[in-house]
Design a protein around this nucleic acid. Structure first.
Lengths: 227, 227
DNA sequence: TCTGGCCGATTGTCAGACAATCTGTCAAGC
DNA sequence: GCTTGACAGATTGTCTGACAATCGGCCAGA
């Protein structure tokens, strides 16, 4: 990211209402407050958010483009559901892209990125034992954010973000398996080491393997459960 | 695709106005009618299309999500420009995804898909000599469409479509090089053969190589030209 | 030449309105 | 009882008009 000389970045959070709504809805869906399949009725959203229908609708169009919601004509938007089949495809693609990202990170070895990766990894190790998983999840999210930025490809970054939004709910499932955490951490550590040592093939493989393992668990739970 | 018993598919083209506008704008940008960097003023679009601002704005949000237009706050949307650097990243990702698609096609060997690929390839060969390139381009587009569908991964398909929309203008450039056509056809033939014979590695390699070659030319032209 | 302020253009957002369309229900008919 | 048809309510899709906020450029003044 182009860092300004001195940090005079007037954050310009003055984002439009539409963007605020968009982010709210995104996190509402990601956090499970809005469940897959649930209808999102415009007027209700207007009341809940206090903004006009215009802004709501435009935000919904954006989320629709990202695949988070699906609009049924003359019926309105619903939170997208995902079949086991699609989930498998999603994980396939994610493995491909994250493998690429891992490889690129290892190739570039940007110290700033590596620093962030290591920080988050250590944070994950530190809080792994907590009952409250939220911080673990936060650390993992940050870890991935660094990985995506580090790959130096804005398209990969954008696409992976979209994919991650869609698996968030599934990821909760797979993280719930208690004894998965240990293995997961181990795998992530492997990714970190490979990147730090510039081992491109190793980093790619580690990323792919990590996703595949997570996918196996998530898909299993998904098939066992419903929808 | 789930084919209905008898072909009673009432095409239900009755898509919403918003979708019509969206497609119009997409092709207007893809065809170069709207040039990169050009401002898209809502009211003008309203006049040109004859629809209200509501529909225009929602369509723009969609295109924005796809990356085709970029909205500058309080300034309005412009047709997205692309730097040489970003173009390189775009081609990198495209190579990755199309390599994946090629591999999957070779793995699955769906006769319907292979038939379509071959048909379009032969069509390309047939019209390669024409002065008018439009049919060649159309055939190539169809070829790719079949390749994307054949990979059996809706996410890969969707993402690649987005990427293709963004390179369309660049692709024109690279196709303009006259003696590139021969090589290009040869490469595409290679892809087809590999898929038909189920050679996964070969198909992937052929796809990647094809994109890399196209990228080299396009990027060269881009750097030589402007922006 | 640089500074500051004004003005037009355009977006961002809202409220209200209306037709088109979908869904569920309920009565009528076999 | 089960199917058919019609009606009513709910909700979207779209338009219109409106207004404040903001951006860019122009022009006067130092």
């Amino acid at each position: 990211m182009p860092k300004t000389d001195s940090d005079l970045n007037v954050s310009r959070e003055a984002t439009s209402l539409r963007l605020l709504v968009e982010n709210r809805l995104r996190s509402a869906i990601g956090s499970g407050l809005f469940k897959p399949g649930q209808r999102l009725i415009e007027r209700e959203l207007c009341e809940q958010t206090g903004v006009g229908r215009t802004s709501i609708r435009e935000a919904l169009r954006q989320l629709e483009a990202e695949g988070l919601v699906t609009t049924i004509p003359h019926r309105g938007p619903i939170v997208s559901t995902i079949t086991a089949d699609e989930a498998a495809q999603l994980y396939d693609l994610r493995a491909l892209l994250e493998g690429f990202a891992g490889r690129e990170c290892a190739k570039r070895r940007d110290p700033a990125i590596i620093g962030r990766l290591r920080t988050q990894y250590e944070r994950m190790v530190a809080v792994a034992g907590n009952d409250d998983r939220s911080e673990l999840l936060a650390a993992k999210t940050e870890f991935y954010a660094a990985l995506l930025e580090g790959c130096g490809n804005v398209f990969v970054e954008r696409f992976l973000k979209m994919l991650l939004n869609r698996v968030t709910v599934l990821r909760m499932t797979s993280m719930t398996q208690p004894n998965r955490i240990g293995r997961s951490l181990q795998e992530i550590g492997g990714i970190l080491v490979a990147i730090e040592s510039g081992d491109e093939d190793g980093a790619e493989q580690a990323c792919v393997q990590h996703i595949n393992n997570a996918a196996a668990i998530a898909l299993d739970a998904l098939r066992r459960g419903e929808t």
